[in-house]
């Protein structure tokens, strides 16, 4: 019997970030321009499996996706029981920068979704010369909270069930059922309080709108791509963000929600490929 292995490989490594050791799970496939993929709040890098398995992309890009600490197959740090998980702007930037350094990535493209789409704005502002380009999927520079985060972590409500039920509102109705539920399954598997801790960054700590005009898109081009049905990072919020980041390019993806790469990979590809082609032609 021949096994038809998927092309990505997964490995673990220990990352020292901010004086804390994290056991990180990372997948990659392809060769060429580094394309570092950042998953959404409360999920993990499995969201990028279609990108990692697409030869049209991996023929030109070294696609890399890792699980943030506390997520997926990356561990929380030693002693995690002693504190509640809470993602901060500084901690998030540090982890991404340390991963880039550990992997010795040269001129990487960073493609982050949701909170990953927010942090790329912070990274582009602070170190535009290092990054080749940023792709902010479902990434507005400011959001308004609309439910009490305490519902996500309490003993009388199942964390996995409520997380999936909350974010199911952000999947487009016409996305294939198979991928809708795969996307939601990732949310069902999150650790206690982890989605809530990510949303601390996404809703409370990571606002960026006042600094958006300072981003130099000539040094680091920014592409904003948001789904029509995203009720969190709505098309309107994306367009407002684009208006603040001079020179950014914005795409509203019809028929897609908050999870383009995992909820409707085929449709997402039609929007992503022209942008990746453009990025591939940017001089390093």
């Amino acid at each position: 019997m021949t096994i038809d292995f998927e092309p990505m490989t997964g490995r673990y490594f220990t990352l020292n970030s901010g004086g804390i050791e994290y056991r990180i799970y990372i997948e990659e496939a392809g060769s060429g321009i580094p394309l570092l993929c950042l998953h959404t709040a409360g999920s993990d890098a499995r969201q990028f499996r279609h990108i990692l398995a697409d030869p049209d992309i991996t023929g030109r890009f070294r696609v890399i996706a890792f699980d943030l600490p506390w997520h997926g197959k990356s561990n929380p740090p030693k002693g995690f029981r002693d504190s509640d998980y809470k993602l901060t702007v500084d901690g998030y930037k540090q982890i991404i920068s340390d991963v880039c350094f550990a992997l010795d990535l040269q001129s990487p493209v960073v493609m982050g979704c949701s909170m990953g789409g927010r942090i790329v704005c912070h990274l582009a502002l602070e170190n535009p010369a290092y990054f080749r380009a940023m792709v902010a999927l479902e990434g507005a520079d400011k959001l308004e909270p609309y439910y009490d985060l305490e519902w996500l972590h309490r003993p009388d409500v199942h964390g996995g069930e409520i997380q999936a039920a909350f974010v199911s509102s952000q999947v487009a109705p016409a996305s294939p059922n198979e991928y809708r539920w795969e996307t939601l399954w990732h949310y069902m598997q999150g650790g206690p309080g982890v989605f809530k801790g990510d949303l601390h960054f996404y809703w409370l700590d990571g606002d960026f709108d006042e600094r958006s005009p300072q981003i130099n898109t000539k040094a680091c081009p920014i592409y904003l791509m948001s789904g029509e049905y995203d009720c969190s990072c709505t098309p309107e919020r994306t367009l407002e963000t684009a208006s603040r980041i001079k020179g950014s390019k914005v795409t509203i993806m019809q028929g897609i929600g908050h999870f383009p790469m995992s909820e409707n990979p085929a449709l997402f590809k039609t929007y992503l490929m022209p942008i990746l082609s453009e990025i591939a032609n940017i001089p390093a």
Partner: peptide, 8 residues
């Protein structure tokens, strides 16, 4: 499309 899209 969803009650939690209608709420916000």
């Amino acid at each position: 499309h969803d009650i939690f899209a209608m709420l916000p």
